[in-house]
């Protein structure tokens, strides 16, 4: 893959995409562009249409209306589809084969010759830092290592676009960070990455751009920092962590003030203008209530706050 120099060429271009299942419109006039070296985080609640969008890009759902091109070619062409590397959410590997054997198999199945696969193997192993585990059986690997092999199997044919569906599900923090490094490394080599995730922290730390898929369109989209700046400006987020759930009466009061409840019921959040005086006043006021407070924290709002604001949910994801 070419190193990134100068203007980044678009790899995936989606325009006016419309997908309906019967009377239900899933994607409506959707537009999306992902360029070389870009990591685009596709965010959205369950059922928003992320899977439909990915399946349409991969050519598995018939294009009903609109245009999709991959590296300048329509995705209805087989050659364009071959420019895609797909990393499914599941560990899509043969458990009874070693890492190297898996990669050999998937190299051949992705259309590479024996010789090409032999040449691609060191690249994929190195990009995913798998060299030390080449001869280990996949079933013997931990979740994080399996996730790396999952990615390696998708980049053997050196795709232009890498689609990752929840690539870090079920892995610990260290493994997640390593996977982030792997993905960043691939993007530095010019690969365009489409990352579908529910992990908003991951999207914020890993993605160069994110887009919220809701009501069939991606809006808003852009770099995470820019989106947060536009949405919240100088506001800070208050996180109130409780030892016990709030009483119903207190919950009603908190909601009236504008607090949003975490699904566990043990955490409440609120956006406020970030003056030091206000922070102090709020902390005092909270401690005067009947809430069993464990901790009150102030932080810069993240994508989870934005997600909550966009979806209009009174609960965070």
């Amino acid at each position: 893959m070419d190193a990134m120099v100068g203007i980044r060429k678009p790899v995936l271009q989606v325009a006016d995409l419309r997908i309906s299942y019967g009377a239900r419109t899933v994607l409506s006039e959707l537009g999306l562009t992902i360029s070389e070296g870009e990591i685009f985080g596709l965010l959205g609640p369950n059922g928003a249409g992320k899977t439909s969008l990915i399946r349409t890009i991969c050519g598995r759902v018939k294009l009903q209306s609109g245009r999709i091109s991959i590296s300048g070619q329509s995705n209805t062409k087989r050659a364009a589809i071959r420019c895609i590397g797909l990393v499914p959410q599941e560990i899509a590997l043969y458990q009874h084969l070693t890492v190297q054997e898996n990669l050999m198999v998937f190299g051949r199945l992705s259309g590479l010759s024996h010789k090409q696969t032999d040449l691609a193997l060191p690249f994929a192993m190195s990009a995913t830092k798998l060299e030390s585990r080449a001869n280990d059986y996949v079933h013997a690997l931990s979740g994080g290592w399996k996730r790396r092999v999952n990615i390696a199997a998708a980049i053997l044919h050196q795709p232009r676009l890498l689609i990752l569906d929840e690539p870090t599900v079920g892995v610990d923090i260290d493994a997640r960070n390593t996977l982030h490094e792997v993905i960043r490394g691939l993007s530095r080599n010019g690969l365009a990455v489409l990352l579908a995730t529910h992990d908003l922290d991951q999207a914020q730390t890993l993605c160069t751009n994110v887009g919220f898929l809701r009501n069939g369109v991606i809006a808003p989209s852009g770099p995470p920092a820019q989106l947060l700046e536009e949405a919240f400006g100088t506001q800070r987020e208050v996180l109130v962590e409780l030892r016990a759930p709030a009483l119903i009466r207190t919950q009603q009061v908190l909601r009236r003030i504008g607090f949003v409840e975490h699904p566990t019921g043990m955490e409440w959040r609120l956006m406020i203008d970030a003056t030091a005086q206000k922070q102090t006043e709020l902390t005092r006021a909270l401690h005067r209530t009947d809430l069993e407070i464990k901790e009150v924290r102030f932080r810069a709002p993240g994508l989870d706050s934005l997600f909550s604001q966009i979806t209009g949910s009174d609960r965070l994801p």
Partner: peptide, 18 residues
């Protein structure tokens, strides 16, 4: 099919027929 291998192969040269 359930492990996602078919999904992966569907975007490759092989497809399900292979």
């Amino acid at each position: 099919r359930s492990s996602g291998i078919m999904d992966r192969l569907a975007v490759g040269a092989a497809g399900t027929d292979v």
